[in-house]
Amino acid sequence: MSRIIRNRAIAADDYTTLADDAPLPAMGQVIVSLQRWRAERGALAGGGLRVGVRLANTDDIALVWADVRERPLIALEWPKFADGRAFTQARLLRTRYGFAGELRAVGDVARDQMFYMRRCGIDSFAPRADQDLDGCLAALTELSDAYQPAADGVVPVWQRRRRHA
């Protein structure tokens, strides 16, 4: 079982990522694509499975929210390091739609973006195979503060300075 970071700790990944044509197990925790979730919702939701859904970073959260709102896990994809669309998806899921389940970063996930992912509401990371997990863990807090509000409850500096005045 591969290892992930969840809630600021290294953990075993207890979800299995299923390809769209892979057979469904009878039990356990799986992550499927949005397409598969939509197509096979009856079979997936009916049995003993706990199902997370993976979104593409081009999916409009406003259009998919109704499909994923009850899911215990949503996986957001960084197809490559420099493609930052999923930062917006994460922040919207947390702050606009109030998603309270596990929000996982998958794909080209590396430590140097994890601080920003965390601030946008990602609480679960499946780092790229070459990543050192202890380094990733440290990167989650590598800046000690932040200026602006995001999805991590940081009070923006302009509000904090009101109190100091």
Binding site: F87, M117, C120, A146, A150
Partner: peptide, 9 residues
């Protein structure tokens, strides 16, 4: 500065 959502435009 360090805007977490808009650092990879």
């Amino acid at each position: 500065s360090f805007h977490p959502e808009f650092n990879w435009l």
